[in-house]
Structures are given as structure tokens and as C-alpha cells.
Design a binder for these strands. Structure first.
Lengths: 133, 133
DNA sequence: TTAATTGCAAACCCTTTGCTTCATC
DNA sequence: GATGAAGCAAAGGGTTTGCAATTAA
């Protein structure tokens, strides 16, 4: 039986922070913002709540080729553009290809519960920059 | 000026190992395999060469929601299915949607150099398993 | 009241890196 | 022979976790 979950000030704040931005922040950025409201909130609490919120489907975790995760307050599937230079993540307003999941189910012979798609390139601010790999 | 790159036994072996499997192995798995041929090869060498091979486009690095990377000896873009229970990664034989990149370029106002797509679900071996999140 | 959650700090774990020695070109 | 690469081991850095003290329900 799943444990009940309490709505703490910390959890509420973290969710508010995530929903109020479109920069797909890192845990550390959320931490810095949260400290402005609850100065002694701990990074452990940030991670624990990000994990909870992800588990309940209220937020999404993004991990696109970097050593750390970013978080998205919009839990509905949508696609992203990732800048290969500055690492910033942008939302892309493209229709989600749910029909492709059916196709994959046929080929895999098993149920598909979701998919992700990310596009890579240089954002407008990073045009002309040299990037390795 | 870019440094020249030498073909060492270690690098050659690592590339051979990656090309001879379709399990999308972790660095550690490659390490264990490599040790069977070069017993005192080091994990640092594995990582350095995986980085080199990735930079030259000979292999691909996959990082799909886990704390560690997997590697793919096939550098041509293709899609993957990731099992949410056992973490195994399977190739999916679907045509690559290059036309979508053009669409994203229009919307982003900047060049798109590539994209990735991964499907999630339970593989046939993990059917019926409970998974959180 | 009581058990889930916090804050703190130490532990984790995958990956990177500095340095000396080795081996490719 | 010169210098890029290997081996070793320690450091790095984001994330997780154990535990006593809080606090939501």
C-alpha cells in the first residue's frame, strides 16, 4: 500500500516555482529560488520533493545529455529543443505523435506507455559558436 | 589545431566490443569485456576512448533517464525502446523523421542538427511488473 | 498523537582528471 | 625520439540517504 503524502510548505513552494517558469530549471536553481522564501530549506528536500512530484506525475524530469537533470512543471508530453552550446531547453509547439506509439507497440509486441523527442542545435543566442562533438 | 589521434590497441578493442553487441552497454560492461582481452586496461581508458569515439561520431552515447550512460556502436540516428523496469534498451526499426527537423527549424528560427526519440514501456520479459512513476 | 517530512551532513556512484610511464607514429 | 595515450588512484559533482527533530493530518 502506498504511503500517504503530505502537502508541506516546502513541497507546495517547489511546485509553484516549477509552474511559474519555462526555463526547465535544474534542482539547484529551484533550490536557490526556494531559499528566497524558506531560507533554511535543504537541497535534500528539493530532491526528495522533485522525486515525489515526478512519481505522482505532477512534473517531468528531463535529462538530455548532461550530467544533471532539469525539471518541467508541465507534465503533459511535449517536445524540446536543446542548445548544444548553452544547454538551455526550449519548448517546441509541435503536435505529439501518439500514433507512433501504436506503431512501436506492433513492432515491439508490448505496450508503449510514452515517448520523448528532443531536437538539438544552437539556439539563436549561440549562433556561430563552435561546439565539439 | 585539433590533436592527432592514435589508434591504440585499447581504442580498437573498445570499438570492436561496441560494434559486436546490440545491448547498448554501459561503460562498466565494456570495461568487463575489455578486461578479458587486456586484463590491466583501466576504466579511465574506457571512458576516455568512449569520449573520443563519440566526438568523432563513431559511436553514440545514450542517456535515458538513468544515472549512467549507455553506448551504441551504431552512430546512425535510430530510435530506441527503453524498458522502465529492467532498463534494457532496444533498437526500433522505424524510419527517421528528418522532415520534422525542418519544421522545428522554422519554428525555432535556428538550425537543427539532430534529434532523438525514445519510447518507454515494459519489455516482453518484464510484462506484469509494477513500476513506480 | 503519530508517522511522514525536514534539515543536516555524510555517503554514493558514475565519470573525470593529474601525473608518471608506455607505446604509437 | 616526440608526444599522445594508458594505468592508477584520487578528486569531482550531482543525487541519495540515515537519523534526530519537526510538523501536517
Amino acid at each position: 500500500m502506498a504511503k500517504t503524502t503530505r502537502m508541506t510548505r516546502q513541497k507546495k513552494l517547489i511546485l509553484e516555482i516549477l509552474r511559474s517558469t519555462n526555463i526547465h530549471p535544474t534542482a539547484d536553481w529551484v533550490y536557490e529560488q526556494a531559499r528566497k522564501v524558506i531560507p533554511d530549506i535543504s537541497l535534500g528536500t528539493i530532491y526528495r520533493n522533485l522525486g515525489n512530484l515526478k512519481a505522482t506525475g505532477e512534473i517531468m524530469e528531463l535529462n538530455y545529455g548532461s550530467t544533471f537533470s532539469r525539471y518541467d512543471g508541465n507534465p503533459d508530453n511535449h517536445y524540446h529543443f536543446v542548445c548544444k552550446n548553452c544547454g538551455r531547453v526550449f519548448d517546441i509547439d509541435l503536435p505529439v505523435l501518439t500514433n507512433l506509439e501504436k506503431e512501436v507497440e506492433r513492432r515491439m509486441g508490448t505496450q508503449v506507455t510514452g515517448h520523448r523527442m528532443e531536437f538539438y542545435g544552437l539556439c539563436r543566442g549561440c549562433q556561430g559558436v563552435e561546439v565539439d562533438s
